[in-house]
Amino acid sequence: MNWRLIKDKLVERSFSLLLFSSLIVIALILTGLIVKSVPLVQAEHLGKILTESVWSPLKGSFGFLPFIMGTIWVTLISLIIAVPLCVLASVYLVEYAGDALRSMVLPLVNVLAAIPPVLYGVWGVLFVVPLLGQFVGPLFGVETTGYTVFAGGVVLAVMIFPIMISIMVEVLQTIPQELKNASLSLGATKWETVTKVILIKAKPGLLAAVVLGISRAFGETVAVLMVCGNIPQIPKSFFDAGYPLPALIANNFGEMMSIPLYDSALMFAALLLFVIIFGFNLLSRIILNKLEAKAS
């Protein structure tokens, strides 16, 4: 056989080996998470773990509800802030702004995406927390240190701007000009065309962008951990401290070895995160892939 052909085969073998071993690693990760979580689920009923609100590893009670609620609170707050801003800004960039402005703003948004989480955390500690503690809290008549789910939500909102903007802009750019013309030629204003035609047509794609934003917010660890107080309680208002799931893992991993079931509980937390985020990402990717196939 020709040397060229042998080389080709060798390369093919080694490349496929890389692919399959990485696929196997992924499978192993999932298996590892599940295996490690099993002891907790065996000791306690799954429903109880998820709905119980007392977290006291020393006494053997592992209620995840405060952490789940903490995660949901910060995620929801970040969405309330980020979704309207991102939709408005992307519509502006695609429908109103000129090329010059667009090609200036989008790279800046990319810079925002490149900033590491810990720097967002620093900004949160230096700016958002004092702002909430000293100004916004008193404004609402609330006594607070500022280390709240609100602070977590604000920091997260800024962190999910880039992913949402970049996908929303892409989605809006696929709306055909003729469809906009159809609405405009009936005498609709641009804004009417945006709200009644463009946004409706773009809904699945925008939804996918929001879902990606959610999964990003769900998994964000350190930036949120730095600003939201980390008290294992179910938050009742914007100005309560919360304790999201990723923060739970990050804060407790080092010291878990001696307490029974503790490591299993933390792995269970990681498994929860993995499954939820995997599901969200899968959903949005499937939507986006479908849209892409339709557009081409």
């Binding site: 992924i26 990723p246 990681a270 985020i277 990402n281 899968l282 499937i286």
Partner: peptide
Amino acid sequence: SKLLFDVLFGIPSIVYGAI
């Protein structure tokens, strides 16, 4: 595989760290 890598892209680093 492509879908899987797409999805893995979004898995938070704390999960990798824990594992």
